[in-house]
Every structure is written in C-alpha cells, then in structure tokens.
C-alpha cells in the first residue's frame, strides 16, 4: 500500500485511480468529499422539482425537467466515482442520505417557494458550483476529475438558463422585479456561504488540499465568485444588500466580512439539524420508502447486479 508521504508527494491532477493501492485516510477523505457532492446533486434536484410543473411556459418546463434530470445523472456519476474508492457502496450512501446522516450543500436545506427564487439556485448557486467544479477537473482522484468533465459541460447550460430566467424576471413587471430583489436579499448570504467557512475554520481543508483532492481554498473560490457575480447581479439590476459587508479592494476585487454571516445557522445546517432541511431530507426519504417494493423486486431478480449497471428495464 502507498504510504501517505508518497501520496502527498505524488498528489497532482488525475494522479490516482482504482489501480493504486491508496491508504485509508486518502480513500475516506475522497469518499467524504465526493459523497457530499453527489448528495448535493440529489437534494438540489429534490428542491427544484416542483418548479418543473410550475414553470411559466412549455419551453421553460422542458429545460427545467432536463436540468433536474441532469442533476440526477450527475449524482449517479458521482456516486460511481465515490464507490470506486472502495469505502462505501452507492446503496449505503443513498441510505445515509435518507436517514439524515448524509451531508449536502447548505443552500439545499432552505425551502424554495416561488419561481423568483429559482434563479437564486440555478444562476447563483449553480454558478458558484461551476467555479468549484472547474477546479475539481484537476483533482487527484481520476474518476472524480473525469466525472467533472461531464458535469461542468452540462452545468454550463444550466447556468445560462438560470441567467435567462433572472434576466426575464428583472426585465419583467415592477412586481416581478421587486419579488426577485427580495428573493435575492434573502438568498445572498446563503449563496456566499456556499463556499463554506474561511480557510482557518474549515475542518477538512488542509488534508484534502495536501493530497490534491481539493484544488483551491474556500477563500480563493469565494473571492473569485464575488468578483465575477457581483457585476453580473448589478448588470441585471439587482442591488447588493448592505449586509454582509463586502469590501472592494484597490484592484477592484471583492472580499466579504465573514463575521456578518450567520455561522451558527451554517453549522446547524451542516449537522442536518436545520428545520426546513430536515423536512426535505424526510420528504425524500418518504418518497424513497414508497418505492422500496420496486427495488426489492429488482434485487430479487438480479441479486448480483445490485443496481449498479443500467438494467434492461430502467
């Protein structure tokens, strides 16, 4: 087995694959990171699914159904990349997610109640995700990096669609514009928290970065996001809320005043203890339990396949 020192020495983009005999610490850290990512795809899709129906036109509905489908496809791909580390099976990860043990992005713990909130996810959160995912194409676990190629490609379309929804709302009636601004004010701090706490408070950062799993720090990603998305938000006529305070540096780049953000809420969410998020976890669990009987039928048919490979009837 490769020792940790060698892992750190060799850690580079797409360096390790299932052919390598990697130490437990690496495999567990990579599993935790990819499982979190996969869970987030599923819970993001769960949050957005009511808006397939509530889309305000057939074109939007088609695009939104395809988007939700893509997120499930990303989940499938990422669980496979996580499974290839040999720590947990897909079923274990999906069960953990249903039981409230699986962790996922803070933004997907909040309720999504109106179409004006849709671009908060499909433009800003997805845009933030794109930034992070683009760096993960250079992660050291090759199957993860490979999954990111496809995910980034599709996510690009989602963000474009989200941007189009935002643009439509912000060029619509005064009422639409006001509702969208209100949604933005509510979501803005959560969107900034997408990148997690500042590097010195982040629990897993050092190790993940030393073995090449993580390519950029939370702070760098957050700042790069602000540089890109503050001008975009303004371009569509959104006003950036006063809080959290955002400092503009001399070179025109931005940084957020971390203390203005609600980190108690963030860590409550991180423990899966935030009320709306719990409702979403349990709602999804309930839906999964309702189709247990189908999964049992499939497993009885094909005990060896256990649902990994696409079945004749899926």
């Amino acid at each position: 087995m490769m020792d940790l020192g060698t892992v750190k020495e060799r850690a580079g983009p797409r360096e390790f694959s299932p052919a390598d005999d990697l130490p437990r610490e690496y495999r567990e850290a990579a599993t935790r990171m990819i499982e979190f990512h996969a869970n987030s795809e599923i819970m993001g899709a769960y949050l957005e699914r009511p808006f397939i129906r509530q889309s305000p036109s057939i074109d939007r509905k088609l695009a939104f159904s395809a988007k939700v489908q893509d997120e499930i496809g990303h989940g499938q791909l990422l669980y496979r990349a996580a499974e290839s580390l040999g720590v947990k099976t897909r079923e274990e990860m999906l069960d953990d997610l249903a039981n409230g043990d699986g962790k996922f992005l803070n933004c997907f713990h909040y309720p999504l109640e109106s179409w004006v909130e849709v671009p908060m996810i499909s433009f800003f959160v997805d845009g933030a995700a794109m930034r992070r995912q683009a760096t993960l194409r250079r992660t050291s676990w090759e199957p993860y990096a490979h999954a990111m190629d496809k995910v980034c490609f599709e996510e690009g379309f989602h963000v474009k669609h989200g941007e189009d929804i935002l643009k439509e709302l912000m060029t619509g009636s005064r009422k639409e514009q006001q509702m969208t601004q209100e949604a933005f004010e509510e979501w803005w701090p959560r969107i900034i928290q997408f990148f997690g706490p500042t590097d010195d408070k982040s629990t897993h950062h050092d190790f993940a970065s030393s073995v090449g799993l993580k390519q950029q720090s939370n702070d760098d990603l957050r700042n790069a996001f602000l540089d890109q998305y503050i001008p975009k938000a303004r371009k569509y006529g959104l006003e950036i809320p006063d809080e959290p305070r955002i400092r503009e540096r001399d070179d025109g780049t931005y940084a957020v005043e971390e203390d203005d953000l609600d980190w108690d809420e963030f860590f409550t969410i991180a423990k899966n203890e935030y009320e709306p998020g719990l409702g979403q976890i349990n709602g999804r669990k309930h839906a999964q339990e309702a189709v247990d009987w189908v999964r049992e039928t499939i497993e009885r048919d094909t005990p060896a396949a256990s649902g990994h490979e696409p079945q004749a009837a899926d």
Binding site: I42, A45, Y46, R49, I52, R53, K61, S65, A66, V68, Q69, I72, G73, G75, Q76, Y79, R284, A287, A290, V291, V294, R295, I298, G307, P310, Q311, D314
Partner: peptide
C-alpha cells in the same frame, strides 16, 4: 414529471424524465 427525483432508482428516474 411527478416521478422525477422520486423514481425507484436513479436509472429509472433518468428514463422517466
């Protein structure tokens, strides 16, 4: 579309979508 994110498996979810 009611089956999206509610189908028995990820594979059947994709197919029905």
């Amino acid at each position: 579309t009611e089956w999206q994110v509610r189908a028995p498996t990820l594979e059947s979810d994709l197919a029905l979508a």
